[in-house]
């Protein structure tokens, strides 16, 4: 069995007359960080929105290989993509639950599991032992991730009160709480300083290598892209203009042209 995790074929998304994604095909491997790059408005976020069921793609197919089960992502609407297919994502403009504590954010991400454990609230209301045990385990998992990003001491503060860089990291580990097969990150390094960027690189490598979770990464920060990508897909005006390793991408004339424009 190949180790392809995600297979996208001929994906097209139109908004009225605007073709945001135009016949895009690419695939991502299990043990890879696959980056999607491209100038502003190239359609990167739209690819994520189609994958995660927020938009209904106009045409094309998207398959996720989940433990050798081919799952047709087009069949799932928004929340089911996360629940059933195990695709987690973050957002370009961070979407935490700002008035809830950091720990609560992590607990909401484990909602489906805890919901079953609480007997759909019945056992929970009765204070059942088994539920309390599960809740404790979920807290442990949260603590595990918070330790990794160094936010354990702020677990009880409101997520909205964290500094920007910490919010980014929190959003990523929150997404990891659903135990995804594929993690889609939309510009996680945006607004981070060099030190934070480096920490982010470490975190992403850890997720890839130790958690065996495939990562799809949208990023403008070339140092991040070049430092950690195993594979790069370049979009421009919704079309794939290049695909290859980080080193190949860096030297590709098409890519340079798309970013810098032609010279004549």
């Amino acid at each position: 069995m190949s180790n392809t995790l995600l297979d996208v074929q001929n994906l097209t998304m139109k908004f009225g007359g605007l073709v945001a994604i135009d016949d895009l095909s690419f695939s991502a491997k299990k043990d890879h960080i696959t980056s999607i790059i491209g100038p502003n408005g190239a359609g990167k976020t739209t690819v994520f929105n189609c994958l995660t069921g927020f938009y209904k793609a106009t045409a094309g197919s998207m398959y996720l290989n989940k433990d050798n089960n081919q799952m047709d992502l087009k069949k799932f609407s928004d929340f089911k993509v996360a629940q059933k297919a195990g695709v987690a994502r973050t957002f370009q403009n961070i979407r935490l639950f700002p008035q809830m504590s950091v720990l609560e954010n992590m607990m909401v991400a484990q909602h489906n599991k805890l919901m079953v454990a609480s007997g759909f609230s019945i056992l929970g209301l009765l204070n059942s032992r088994s539920y309390l045990q599960k809740e404790k385990e979920a807290t442990e998992i949260s603590k595990y991730w918070l330790d990794i990003i160094g936010l354990t001491n702020r677990a009880d503060d409101n997520a909205g009160d964290l500094p920007y860089g910490d919010q980014r990291k929190l959003e990523i580990v929150r997404a990891m709480c659903i135990e995804p097969h594929l993690l889609c990150l939309d510009e996680p390094a945006a607004g981070l300083n060099a030190k934070e960027s480096a920490e982010l690189n470490k975190l992403l490598k850890f997720i890839k290598n130790d958690k065996k979770t495939g990562i799809l990464l949208i990023e403008h920060d070339m140092s991040v892209v070049m430092g950690i990508s195993d594979h790069v897909v370049v979009l421009n005006y919704g079309k794939k203009i290049f695909e290859g390793t980080a080193a190949e991408t860096k030297n590709s004339p098409e890519v340079i042209e798309a970013y810098l424009g032609t010279e004549d």
């Binding site: 089911k80 996360a82 979407r95 935490l96 991400a109 609480s118």
Partner: peptide, 22 residues
Amino acid sequence: LPVGRAWEALREDEIACKSLGV
């Protein structure tokens, strides 16, 4: 309970909730 936390999370950000499978 989880359901109560999900209520508040929905109040805060429905899209984020969906992305977490709620």
